[in-house]
């Protein structure tokens, strides 16, 4: 089948009698179905289809046959429906029985399970009580320990306080400062001593001796310079 189809974007040029060229929509034959925008073809404008000839005898026969056919079909359908219903009823009965059995079985199992659960619960409660007791004991022990620790700390602090108070008695205050300075100035400390292997101090004989030895050293040095 072929028909006229206008292609949207392509335009051909038509040459007029006076030599001018004008753009014109291109109409070309394309195979396919007639698009909606094309009008009825010129040759088909007044075309009316001839109705299909019906043989009246055959038609009457067909009519009666159809009636019979439909009746039979309805009967078959009804039969199938009843069969189906019977089948479903049997299945439903079976399923109901199965359900009952299942429920009984389930209840039996449930009873067993609940029994077991109660037994386990008892055991668990005992365990829990034991654990609780243990926990409390431990908590008590920890509390006692903490108390002991605190007491010890307190005692230590008190000792420290007492010690510090004792110490503070010998502190140098503004009043005693001058006397202390005086004391320190007057203090002579002699570090000229030896220590033996046992850590005993071996004092020198006397401060005088060291002075004489120093004088000797000086005299020796002067002699050496002279030479």
């Amino acid at each position: 089948m072929s028909c006229l189809r206008r292609t949207g974007s392509i335009f051909a040029k038509t040459v007029c009698s006076d030599g001018q060229t004008l753009p014109a929509p291109l109409q070309q034959f394309v195979r396919g179905i007639k698009p909606r925008w094309l009008p009825k073809s010129k040759s088909k404008i007044f075309y009316v289809r001839e109705p299909t000839p019906i043989d009246p005898v055959e038609h009457e026969e067909l009519r009666t046959m159809y009636f019979h056919y439909r009746t039979k079909l309805r009967a078959i359908r009804g039969f199938l429906r009843t069969q189906y219903d019977q089948k479903m009823a049997v299945i439903q009965k079976q399923s109901a029985k199965e359900d009952r059995d299942n429920i009984a079985e389930f209840q039996a199992i449930e009873g067993q399970v609940s029994q077991w659960n109660s037994r386990v619960q008892k055991v668990r409660e005992e365990l829990a009580a034991m654990e609780e007791e243990k926990r409390q004991q431990r908590a008590q022990w920890w509390q006692e320990r903490e108390e002991r620790r605190k007491q010890k700390q307190l005692a230590r602090a008190q000792r420290k306080v007492v010690f510090n108070l004792e110490e503070s008695k010998s502190f140098i205050t503004l009043d005693t400062l001058d006397t202390e300075i005086e004391k320190m100035l007057n203090l002579r400390q002699d570090y000229n001593f030896a220590i033996d292997k046992q850590g005993n101090r071996i004092e020198s004989d006397s401060a005088h001796k060291t002075e004489t030895s120093q004088a000797d050293d000086k005299a020796n040095q002067q002699e050496a310079v002279k030479r």
Binding site: M65, Y69, K72, L73
Partner: peptide
């Protein structure tokens, strides 16, 4: 399908098949 099932024997023969 009715025609086919008629020929298969489940349904009665379809009238159009007769015709």
């Amino acid at each position: 399908v009715e025609k086919l099932l008629g020929l298969a024997g489940l349904f009665p023969i379809h009238p159009m098949s007769y015709i």
